[in-house]
Computed example of a mutant assay.
Amino acid sequence: MNLAQGLQQAGAIDSIARELGIDPAAAQQAAGALLPAIVAGMGRTAVAPQAGAGGGLAEVLRGSLGGGLLDSILKPEPTPAQPGNEILGHIFGSKDVSRGVAEEVSGSTGLPPDLLKKMLPMLAMAVVGYMMKNRAGGSNAGEASGGGMLGGALGGILSEVVTGMLRR
């Protein structure tokens, strides 16, 4: 199963669609277009953390962000944007890059860039939460290991993303 399918099966894509008030098919299309950028950014960060990023993504995951990210997407309450924006800050380095990703995906999908900008932090949280839950065997118990676990999860996901991109 690839990452997009895993997020769909976990209910993250449908939850994001409900929260944003869009059709689940549009949310799935947007997620499919945004995921390669998110995962590639995570891979770059795992290899070489952004300068001034406060210890890198693995350090953030060891803190309060690691636990419950996927659960916060699945809850009926509004998803807090700060954890997702913090993840995006670590993987992209600046808001300008996030905006650029949204603009580029808008051009290729026809979806409004404002919608994609709202979706990016939610999707980043879903990706990290999904990876953490799967690496920890469905619990948050293994999250404290941070970098090694993140690196292993990214290795598998990056190979899925690259394989999917090569098939296009």
Rank of each mutant, 00 (worst) to 15 (best):
D14V: 13
I22S: 04
P24W: 03
D96I: 11
T45I: 07
V105Q: 05
L34H: 03
N140I: 01
G32L: 01
G146Q: 11
V128A: 12
A102K: 10
G142C: 06
A81N: 10
D96Q: 15
Q82S: 13
G138R: 00
I13T: 12
R18V: 13
P78R: 08
L158R: 15
V97L: 04
K118W: 04
R168Y: 08
V161Y: 04
S145W: 10
S159L: 09
L150N: 10
I38T: 09
I91H: 08
V105W: 08
N2Q: 05
L116A: 04
M42L: 14
S106C: 09
G43V: 09
G43D: 11
L88A: 15
A10T: 00
E86S: 14
G148I: 12
Q5Y: 05
S72I: 02
A81Q: 15
G100R: 02
S72F: 01
L20K: 05
A141G: 08
M122W: 06
L158T: 14
E19Q: 15
A33N: 03
Q50C: 08
L7P: 02
G32A: 01
G63K: 00
I16A: 06
L154S: 11
G152T: 06
Q29D: 12
G54W: 08
R18P: 01
M165K: 10
K75G: 11
A17L: 03
G156Q: 11
M1R: 07
G11I: 10
A26N: 12
L166V: 12
